[in-house]
């Protein structure tokens, strides 16, 4: 039984921006940023819909943080557009504090104030956030007992949790989390991973920039992978994992050649390789039954057919050519 409270159960009237439209909460079109001759982001297009978590993956220097900076109006695009809740940046900077909550790389707060006072200061910046909202959010991220302690005394995990609380102050349509579990111990990572899907369930669109691949795999509905500023692939997590999937077929040696020729001719099979008694077929892992049927039809009986799904990590490393993450 899920005992977690909904993350925005106590959202105050008048400041929640979720669920006021069916369009995407974030739309990037042809977004490009050049720093002199260096192109940090190149013709990037991406959608984040309401109620979904989009994992934004890429090696260091791939342009993730620059993209996030452009979404938040901190960095001016050289080309292309950022549209938040149907309104285009720049020139409409006001839509950012109204609709977006973000942790940018590491959460940054004023060290001389308590965690609670930091949230109050952020709430005052945007206005219209009742004091009770601050206390509710502290409770949500399990900081209610340490809320009055100085921020500088917080552990990294507590700082990250305070960062997540601050993103939810205005109940924004879009939540951007840039490496939210960076530096956390396993328990802290799990806490954050539990919160992220609940944000989407509550109607927020979530853009999760991370290099923690298994984390993205666990919590994301869709994944976009960038390399050297360019979007190299995008899709649902299941779809991407299938794309990198394969099937292992174990067959007696005397039937190897016949089976290989048969499988070569089957639709949906990209590649067939043979080694010892094992045929490896690069295809959607769900084709296993079709392969079995075809082999049996030809009088070949496999002793084992094993669908293998790729991990997001192997897919990511294939796509990014082993770049350091």
């Amino acid at each position: 039984m899920n005992t977690h409270p909904p993350v925005t159960a106590t959202a105050p009237a008048g400041i929640g921006k979720r669920g006021n439209g069916n369009g995407p909460v974030l739309q990037l079109e042809n977004l490009t940023k050049k720093f002199g001759d260096f192109t940090a982001v190149s013709h990037l297009s991406l959608l984040v819909q309401q109620g979904e978590v989009v994992g934004f993956l890429g090696p260091n220097g791939a342009g993730k943080s620059t993209t996030v900076g452009m979404v938040l109006g901190l960095i001016r695009p050289t080309e292309g557009s950022v549209t938040i809740m149907g309104t285009e940046l720049p020139g409409n900077q006001h839509i950012v504090p109204e609709n977006v909550g973000a942790i940018i790389e590491n959460p940054a707060f004023y060290p001389y104030m308590s965690g609670r006072d930091n949230l109050v200061a952020h709430a005052r910046m945007v206005g219209g956030v009742p004091a009770s909202r601050v206390d509710d959010l502290l409770k949500l991220v399990n900081l209610n007992e340490r809320g009055k302690d100085k921020y500088k005394s917080y552990s990294l995990g507590m700082k990250q949790r305070l960062g997540i609380a601050s993103t939810l102050l205005t109940d924004p349509a879009l939540v951007i989390l840039d490496e939210p579990t960076n530096g956390l111990d396993p328990a802290g990572q799990r806490e954050i991973r539990e919160i992220i899907p609940r944000l989407a369930q509550d109607g927020h669109g979530v853009l999760l920039a991370s290099h923690m691949l298994h984390e993205v795999e666990q919590v994301s509905d869709r994944v976009a992978i960038v390399r050297r500023g360019e979007l190299v692939t995008e899709g649902g997590v299941d779809e991407l994992l299938k794309r990198g999937g394969y099937i292992e077929v174990k067959i007696a040696p005397e039937y190897m050649d016949e089976a290989r020729n048969l499988l070569h001719r089957m639709p949906g099979i990209e590649q067939v390789t043979v080694s010892d008694q094992l045929i490896t077929v690069v295809a959607d892992p769900e084709l296993g039954a079709d392969i079995n049927r075809a082999l049996v039809g030809a009088g070949i009986y496999a002793s084992q057919i094993s669908p293998r799904r790729s991990s997001l990590e192997s897919l990511f490393l294939d796509i990014t050519e082993g770049s350091t993450v």
Partner: peptide
């Protein structure tokens, strides 16, 4: 020095 400028700008309606 506290890295608070980015969230501050992101929270501001205008610079």
């Amino acid at each position: 020095s506290w890295n608070t400028l980015r969230p501050l700008v992101a929270r501001s309606r205008s610079r």
